[in-house]
Nucleic acid binder design. Structure first.
Lengths: 245, 245
DNA sequence: GCAAAAGTGTTGGAAATACACCCATGT
DNA sequence: ACATGGGTGTATTTCCAACACTTTTGC
């Protein structure tokens, strides 16, 4: 009993103790890497940049940067996106943190991956040289660092989340046809869907607002245009309580 | 064009550049916090310890520690769990990383949350003084640091994951009755389930192996005992391709 | 015999699937 | 006129939700 109390006492730490622990050797560099998905020409794309590290010269990498000392993680992710794409009104979500000791060749760098979806047409890139490029999802192979693993994890998570939340609409124009919507889902999930059942499902959800407009410049019968009713979606509170694996 | 190439050239960095960037000011302390869930007396529990920081004396906190310089994140999480509970044959998964600038009062500390499920009966704790304690899930309120937020996030994720993956079985004895299984799901999801439909669902999944044994020491008709067929589950490849939100 | 939980089936509604034809438009 | 995708309906099946009684065991 006495020993227990002594042990307990010894475990109590003051600021000073923590600070000295923290300021000793236990510090790592922290970065954020953004996996930015876009959609164009009926294909899902990811935005990559040429690696800025000599060792990986010529290879593609994610958009990343070190986190500033007085900057939160989300904040850092938004800053990096803004710096690279010029935009900040977008969906951004933490995916996973990668912290293998040897993942960065120059130093211990732990990185927090964030995932973002942007509409390529709305969000024209500020930098358009060959340093920054939209890649087809299925053409992504070798990448710098462990960025391929980060990309794979992010893509899997995107596929999972897009089935459960209305994320996809941020990749489309404000007004879109059901064909575009279906193409998007087919591209992200990499599956074929029955057109009639797809329509039925989305109409049944009742979150599509008919814009009473039709497509233009299509070489066939134009489809009606819709927008997603985010307000109505936010108010809806249906959650699934099933168990299935 | 010439400017573009110059810009590109300037962006290429050697190890040395990176190292100097990293070794300057851009370093943070990194910790891992473990949210350890257990199940006992038909209640879901979480393992907490008294805060070791003077400012939070008396408050409960998660099991955490700084990540060592030559230690991966997963590795650190397993080490901490082993140190605190004496065990290592358990399920452990990264949940989320919390990096608000002011989340730790003494210094900038970014923490990676991990979530774990253990069978309280199988995994007796090594330390049993009042520093370490199993709390009922619904009695968790104020906690040190931002640990309440970390706990909430982990608990939500647990609820989500337990519906999609057979995690719950690690909280039960190897042989369990369907009543125990249902109690577990009801405790984790905090809902009531229809007993007959619950049985139907699990028998239909066909992952339960009938042990041809029955409960003992129950003051009523004993139920049959089952174990989960992990091998069969691993081989099964049904995945849901629905879209619903 | 009584308390307590085990064990068991049916039915109706909702949602998912599979499937085929006519329509509107641009060329 | 024809090529292209737009737009629609139905039958079938599968899954889920609701619901009540009999059986077994310990006490």
């Amino acid at each position: 009993m006495e020993e227990t109390m002594t042990a307990a006492k010894n475990r109590i730490k003051t600021f000073k103790t923590i600070q000295s622990e923290v300021e000793s050797t236990n510090r790592v560099a922290l970065s954020v890497d953004c996996v930015i998905f876009g959609f164009d020409e009926n294909k899902l794309k990811v935005l990559l940049i040429r690696s800025d590290l000599k060792q990986y010269q010529g290879q593609w990498s994610l958009l990343g940067d070190l986190v500033e000392p007085n900057e939160g993680l989300d904040e850092a992710a938004y800053r990096i996106l803004k710096q690279r794409t010029g935009l900040n009104d977008l969906f951004l979500e933490q995916v996973h943190t990668f912290g293998e000791v040897e993942r960065h060749p120059a130093s211990r760098v732990v990185t927090v991956a964030y995932c973002s979806l942007i509409n390529i047409q709305h969000h024209k890139l500020k930098i358009l040289d060959n340093e920054l490029h939209w890649h087809d999802i299925d053409s992504v192979s070798e990448m710098a660092f462990d960025h391929k693993e980060i990309f794979d994890t992010s893509y899997s998570q995107l596929q999972k989340r897009v089935r459960e939340h209305p994320l996809g609409f941020s990749l489309l124009p404000n007004k879109f046809s059901l064909r575009e919507l279906q193409n998007l889902y087919e591209a992200i999930l990499n599956i074929k869907l029955d057109r009639r059942n797809f329509r039925k499902k989305f109409f049944a959800m009742d979150f599509l607002i008919d814009m009473d407009e039709v497509e233009t410049d299509v070489p066939h019968r134009p489809g009606r245009l819709y927008r997603f009713d985010y307000a109505k979606y936010e108010k809806s509170t249906k959650k699934w309580n099933g168990i299935a694996f």
